[in-house]
């Protein structure tokens, strides 16, 4: 006989109750949101399932693909590997906060111009990641951009376009700095 592997010792007659929800305040795209969340809700699920901000994508839920990338205090992170309760007091920026269809950010426009996506599912994560890369100011050459955009997997294989799009914006930004 083989047992389904479970979270319990087995033979349990009563199971630990789910945690109760509490009040959590998140600052998302500059707006304070008061939400009722249990501690086990990740930032990613809080955005998608509780705040109806579905622009942030779930591609693996384990920090292995980068689709869920958002910016926290300007730094890019994987929102699937942090709990919403751990992000109180931080400034969270999602793809919806970077631009809207009628007011695209330079990165969003560059992604369209260079056809830097196909199915579009990894795209919000790619763009948030690229925004984080710009904020870091560490990537200038093509090789540096390739490496520092490698935390975002694109199964369609749009990497050539992604590189071109990010490079264009990086170059424009460094011209402004000069």
């Amino acid at each position: 006989m083989i047992q389904q592997p479970t979270n319990t010792a087995g033979g349990a007659t009563s199971l630990p109750a789910p945690p109760s929800a509490g009040s959590v305040t998140l600052t998302i795209n500059g707006v304070q949101r008061h939400m009722q969340l249990a501690p086990w809700t990740t930032l990613l699920d809080a955005l998608r399932e509780y705040a109806d901000l579905t622009g942030t994508k779930k591609g693996c839920d384990h920090g292995q693909c980068g689709s869920c990338t958002v910016l926290v205090n300007g730094k890019r992170i994987n929102s699937c590997l942090t709990l919403a309760v751990m992000q109180e007091g931080n400034e969270i920026t999602t793809i919806e906060g970077l631009g809207q269809p009628e007011s695209l950010s330079p990165l969003q426009q560059a992604f369209i111009d260079h056809d830097a996506f196909q199915c579009g599912y990894c795209t919000p994560g790619q763009i948030c990641s690229a925004q984080g890369l710009l904020n870091e100011g560490r990537a200038h050459t093509e090789d540096e951009i390739r490496e520092l955009m490698s935390g975002n997997i694109c199964r369609c294989g749009a990497y050539v376009g992604i590189l071109a799009a990010v490079k264009e914006v990086v170059d424009k930004q460094s011209e402004i700095v000069k």
């Binding site: 979270n7 699937c80 590997l81 709990l83 751990m86």
Partner: peptide
């Protein structure tokens, strides 16, 4: 829990099963 990058990964796989998380951040 600090970054959570490995702990939450393992909790979702049910490999780690803490009943209390002490946030350090």
């Amino acid at each position: 829990v600090a970054g959570g990058t490995n702990l939450l990964d393992l909790m979702k796989e049910n490999v780690e099963r803490p009943t209390r998380l002490i946030g350090l951040n």
